[in-house]
Design a protein around this nucleic acid. Sequence first.
DNA 1: ATCTTGACTCAAT
DNA 2: CATTGAGCCAAGA
Length: 105
Amino acid sequence: MGYQEEPTKDQKIWQVVMAVPPGKVVSYGQVADMAGLGRQARYIGRALGKLPKGHSVPWYRVIRSNGQIAFPEGSEIYQEQVSRLQAEGVEVVNGRVAMRRFRWQ
DNA sequence: ATCTTGACTCAAT
DNA sequence: CATTGAGCCAAGA
């Protein structure tokens, strides 16, 4: 079997997302950057979609660069993201997060 | 192998 | 504010 001592792209992404503190949010693009993936913002969403069942990755703290939730408004997943964010004190108005984004630094 | 999609982003219009 | 186009690239069909 092939060794894979180094974390895979997905694992790096999850690790980066786990480093986002409660009450703060980051954009897909920022996560891509932090994980060393450059402009592969679209890969982030794909990786988060692969999260295993019992994970503890705060996927809901990842939003679009313009502050919007990346799911269709009204969908179940959308609602879950909004309520999880609000539970941490993040203000969400009209599908958009009205709070300063978390910065790596 | 080709074509389409998509939890994206940015600049230009 | 909305639309468009280009850049990016892994999954699916």
